[in-house]
Design a protein around this nucleic acid. Structure first.
Lengths: 346, 346
DNA sequence: TTGTACGCGTTATCAC
DNA sequence: GTGATAACGCGTACAA
C-alpha cells in the first residue's frame, strides 16, 4: 500500500485518462459499465480515497462548518454541539469546534481562522464580553451563512435559534406563585447578556400578572456558581421581609442557595421553594432534586443546523433571516413542589 | 466589499504579479520593503484572507485534526476534547469532531470521512463494539498519526494516552480497606473494554495485598446508570455475608447504589462506604458527596494532542510509538471517609 | 464513450 | 527584487 493515491495513479494503471476515472467514480452516466466497474474495483484495491480538499478548492464548497462556543465542556454547549453534529453529519458536513473562553479577542481570532479555513457556515454563541461587530460583517461580506444560537446579537440578515427566555422566566415564576410563594426573589446574571435580561423580565411580568409586587430589592445579579448562590441567600435573609422562594437563572446558583438554606435549617420545599434554569444533569440527581427550566440544547443544536441547511439549500439563494425561538419547559422537582400544592394541582 | 479576494485581485490592483504578493504576505526576504508594505496595506483594505484550502492542497498539510469519540456530550469526553482543542489551537490546527454513538459502523465511516478530509492526524477513543482493525490500518497506510485516548487497542506503531486504570482500581480499593471495610463489593462494566477489566484487576490486587479474600460473588458486571446501581445493591444484599463497601467503576452506578442504600436505611459512611470512578461533576455537588477516582480528562486531552504534535514534528519523521499512562487520583469525599478513620489518618 | 484542457488559490522554482 | 510558470487533485465543458 502506498501513501497518496490519486485518480491519476489509477488512470495510469488502467491506461485511461484521469477524467474517465473521475466520471466512473462519480456515477456520471456517460461511461460504459465495464469501465466503471473496472475503475471502481481498482480504486478499491489501491485504497483510493477522494481528496475533499481538492474538490473543495475547485467547487468553492468545503463542507466544513465552524461552531464557536465559549467552552465546549459545559453540558449545555456540549449538548448543542452534539445536536449540530448529528444534524450536519448526514448532510456531508464536518464540524470544526472552537472555543472563545468568553473573550472577545478569541472570538474575533476564531472567526478569522474559520474564514481562512473556508468554512461553508458559522454557527456560534456569543462570548460574554462581545461588543464588536466588525468580525460579523466580515462573515457576511463573504456571503457565508451565520447562525447564532442561545446568545445572539441582533444583526440584519443573521438568523438565530434561541429559547424564549422571557417565557422561561415567566413559567418558573408562575410555578412558584402557584405553589403559594408570596415573596419571590430572583438571582440573575449580567444583563449585558440578553438571555439573563429576558429571563428577568419574564419573572417581573409573572409577578405583575398575578398581583404580586416587583421589588428590585429581591433581584440580585450574581455570578454563575454555587458560592454566589450561598452569599445571595445570606444577603436576602438580611432583608426586613425575607423571601419564601427563589427563581435563579442558573442551576449552580440554585444549588448553592439550596445548600445555604438547608444549613440555615430552612425546610424545602415546605417553607421555601427554589427553581433553577438550564436543567443541568445534576439537578435531577440530587437528593432534593431541583426544579429547573429545560432549554432543550440538543434540539437547539439540531435547529441551528437546520437553519443553516435551509440557507445553503435555499432556492434562488435567498438569504432568509430566520429567528427561531424554542419554547422552554419547566421540569418540576422536589425543590419547588409542596405536598399541599401537589394535591391542589390535581 | 466583495466576495472572495485572492492574491490575484490584489496583484491586479497593484500592477504586480501574484507571486510577488505571495512573497510579500509570507515575509519572504527577497522583496523590497516598499512593495511589502504596499501589499500588506492593500491586502488589509481589500479584506483579503488566505485560502487555507489552496495552501493545504499544495502543501499536503490541511492543519485539520480529527477527533472521534462515542458521544461528545458526556462530561468526560467533552473535557478531553476541550483539552485537545486548547493544545492544538495555538499550533494552528483546527479540530473536527465526530461521534460514533458507540457503534463500529459509524466509527469506520467516520474514519473514512476524516481521511477524505485530509486530516493531518486522528485522535480517537474506541467505541465499545469495535472489533475490526482494517480501518486503523487504513490510517496507518496513509502515514497519518493515530493516537488513542482512554479506550485503546494495542496496535503496533500507534500511540495512546490512557490512565492507569489498574492503579485507579487499586487506590480506590485500598482506600476502602483503610477505612476499615472488610467485605468490599465491586461493580464493574463490560470487560471487553480494557479499562473496566484493568480497574477490576486493581481491585483484586489491592484485596490480596491487604490480606482480604477475592470472591467473585462480590463482583458484578452492570450497565453504567443509576438503575443498575440500585439493582446491584439489591443483589448484593441477598448474599449471606453482606458487603460493607462498594467500589464502582462508574459514578452513576455509585450514585444509584448510594440512593438504594439510603432507602434501605443504611448509614453512609458509618456503616457502608462507596467509591465511584470518573469524578463526574455531580459527585462533588451531592449532599453526601461521592468519593471518586479522577481521570484528569482535560490533561488527557492535552497529552493526546502533545503526543500527536511530537509525531508530526518528530526529527527525521521517526514515528515514535508513545504509550502514555496518566496517574489517576482518588478524591476522598463524604461517601467513604469515616469519622474514625479520619482521625486515624492524621 | 473517452480524451483534452482548464481552473480553483497558493507557493516554489526557475529565470530575468 | 520581480515575473512567469508549474504543481497540488479534482471535476467538467468541450472536442473527438
Amino acid at each position: 500500500m502506498s501513501e497518496k493515491i490519486t485518480i491519476y495513479d489509477i488512470a495510469k494503471k488502467l491506461n485511461i485518462t484521469a477524467a474517465t476515472v473521475s466520471r466512473a467514480l462519480n456515477n456520471n452516466p456517460r461511461i460504459s459499465d465495464t469501465t466503471r466497474k473496472l475503475v471502481m474495483e481498482t480504486a478499491a484495491s489501491m485504497g483510493y480515497t477522494q481528496n475533499k480538499l481538492a474538490l473543495a478548492l475547485k467547487s468553492g464548497k468545503s463542507n466544513l462548518v465552524g461552531v464557536i462556543v465559549p467552552y465546549i465542556d459545559t453540558s449545555f454547549f456540549a449538548s448543542i454541539i452534539r445536536g449540530i453534529e448529528e444534524a450536519l453529519h448526514p448532510e456531508g458536513y464536518n464540524v470544526i469546534i472552537c472555543q472563545t473562553h468568553e473573550t472577545e479577542a478569541k472570538e474575533i481570532e476564531t472567526v478569522n481562522t474559520l474564514l481562512n479555513a473556508q468554512v461553508d457556515g458559522i454557527l456560534m454563541s456569543l462570548s460574554k464580553t462581545s461588543k464588536e461587530t466588525t468580525h460579523f460583517e466580515h462573515i457576511l461580506n463573504k456571503k457565508i451563512p451565520l447562525v447564532f444560537f442561545d446568545r445572539r446579537k441582533n444583526i440584519k440578515g443573521v438568523s438565530s435559534v434561541t429559547i424564549d427566555d422571557f417565557e422561561g422566566g415567566y413559567v418558573a415564576t408562575k410555578h412558584l406563585i402557584e405553589q403559594g410563594c408570596k415573596t419571590i426573589a430572583h438571582l440573575s446574571g449580567d444583563w449585558s447578556l440578553e438571555i439573563y435580561k429576558n429571563r428577568s423580565e419574564g419573572y417581573k411580568q409573572a409577578l405583575l400578572d398575578h398581583g404580586l409586587k416587583y421589588d428590585e430589592k429581591y433581584l440580585l445579579h450574581v455570578k454563575s456558581d454555587t458560592e454566589a448562590g450561598k452569599s445571595a441567600v445570606d444577603t436576602l435573609m438580611k432583608l426586613d421581609k425575607k423571601p419564601d422562594a427563589i427563581f435563579s437563572s442558573s442551576d449552580f446558583v440554585a444549588l448553592g442557595a439550596i445548600q445555604r438554606l438547608q444549613e440555615l435549617g430552612i425546610k424545602l420545599p415546605d417553607d421555601f421553594c427554589v427553581v433553577g434554569f438550564s436543567n443541568e444533569p445534576f439537578t435531577q440527581l440530587m437528593e432534593l432534586s431541583i426544579s429547573s427550566v429545560d432549554q432543550a440544547p440538543h434540539e437547539m443544536g439540531r435547529m441551528a443546523a437546520k437553519v443553516f441547511l435551509d440557507q445553503v439549500s435555499g432556492v434562488g439563494k435567498v438569504k432568509i433571516e430566520q429567528k427561531v425561538e424554542l419554547t422552554p419547559h419547566l421540569i418540576s422537582r422536589k425543590s419547588s413542589v409542596k405536598p399541599v400544592a401537589k394535591k391542589k394541582a390535581k
